[in-house]
């Protein structure tokens, strides 16, 4: 779990993924790979296979939801806006890390004693809050965190028994799975695609697809687990401890049935407990890549995470290892039997 911890502790909102890239580059250097980059911020590694064998792309996005500094108040506070969707209701009284130097900051609210009745029951929007790094005045704030500085939640990754607590499992869990899967031996060509800017609309996906034109793309994601109070069963996207999540459809793509069935069958034959994504919601890079280069068949395998897009998420160790096993088993099967039709 050391690598997962490094990945999750790294800061990387859309457009500011440098630290995450460095963690991944270092890991792959240790395996003997050279990094390939493009002009947008994507990162790739290629393991060449035998000619005639399918070219399989494993994709995960580097970015997490976060904030960026858009201004400074006279008292030295940082005005921020969110990058990627973050519910206003998780913002109150939280710790953040500012910039690549990871300065400490806090997002604090008005004391309850000073709120009137209406305020007390209303959501406090982000624009009414600011990040406090302890700067004495505007000049000190600007010096330490100029315009455009990125900000992420400050959450330490920890193991709680059979569950891991941390931030940004969406999609560092996916990145981690790819790092592990690329260690396997196969005759297929494996293309590790770490894309940027997914949370802002799958920005890097198109360039990745067009550059490598894979025969199949496997999207490794972190999806929301819905097995909590207040969520009716038919609206639960997935359950923690239920195994890796296989998508049949989301708002961006209908997974081609033959490929989804092959993936499911692989899970069954390898005795890996899996679950369907229970809601037709959200979208992934697969939705963006499916039309490129004449059409690319895509499947999506995800880890169920509670409380994604908030400061603290939970993921089950069993679901993560299941995800790696399923990915490897699927690649092995494609190597042996080729792609459907």
């Amino acid at each position: 779990m050391e690598l997962l911890k490094k990945l999750c502790d790294a800061s990387g909102p859309p457009g500011y993924e440098e630290e995450v890239r460095q963690v991944i580059i270092e890991h792959f250097k240790g395996l003997g790979f050279e990094p390939i980059t493009d002009h947008t911020g994507n990162l790739f590694f290629v393991k060449e296979g035998k000619p005639g064998k399918p070219r399989i792309m494993l994709d995960a996005h580097l970015d997490e939801v976060g904030f960026e500094v858009i201004g400074h108040s006279g008292d030295g506070d940082l005005r921020v806006k969110s990058i990627g969707g973050i519910d206003d209701r998780v913002l109150g009284a939280k710790h953040v890390l500012v910039g690549s130097k990871k300065l400490k900051g806090v997002l604090g609210m008005k004391a309850p004693h000073n709120q009137d009745h209406n305020e007390y029951y209303a959501v406090v929007p982000l624009k009414a809050l600011a990040v406090d790094i302890g700067a004495k005045d505007k000049a000190e704030a600007e010096k330490n965190a100029p315009l455009g500085t990125h900000v992420v939640f400050d959450t330490v990754t920890e193991e709680w028994g059979d569950v891991i607590k941390g931030k940004s499992f969406d999609d560092r869990a996916g990145c981690w799975v790819i790092c592990k899967a690329m260690e396997m031996t196969t005759d297929c060509t494996l293309i590790a695609s770490f894309t940027f800017g997914e949370e802002l609309g799958m920005l890097g996906a198109k360039f990745s697809a067009r550059r490598f034109a894979p025969d199949i793309m496997i999207s490794l994601e972190g999806t929301s687990a819905g097995d909590m109070p207040e969520v009716p069963e038919h609206q639960q996207c997935s359950k923690m401890h239920g195994g890796p999540v296989i998508t049949f459809e989301d708002k961006s793509i209908i997974i081609p049935r033959a490929y989804r069935e092959m993936l499911e069958d692989t899970a069954k034959k390898s005795k890996i407990e899996y679950q369907y994504k229970g809601t037709v919601t959200g979208g992934t890079n697969a939705g963006r890549m499916q039309f490129e280069t004449g059409g690319i068949p895509c499947v999506v395998i995800a880890a169920p995470c509670r409380y994604i897009h908030s400061p603290v998420s939970l993921v089950a160790k069993k679901d993560l290892t299941g995800m790696i096993e399923l990915t490897k088993a699927f690649i092995t099967r494609i190597d042996k039997e080729g792609l459907p039709q």
């Binding site: 793509i253 209908i254 499916q290 039309f291 490129e292 280069t293 004449g294 059409g295």
Partner: peptide, 8 residues
């Protein structure tokens, strides 16, 4: 969606 793939 299908049309987009055919176009590329």
């Amino acid at each position: 969606r299908g049309a987009s793939a055919v176009i590329t």
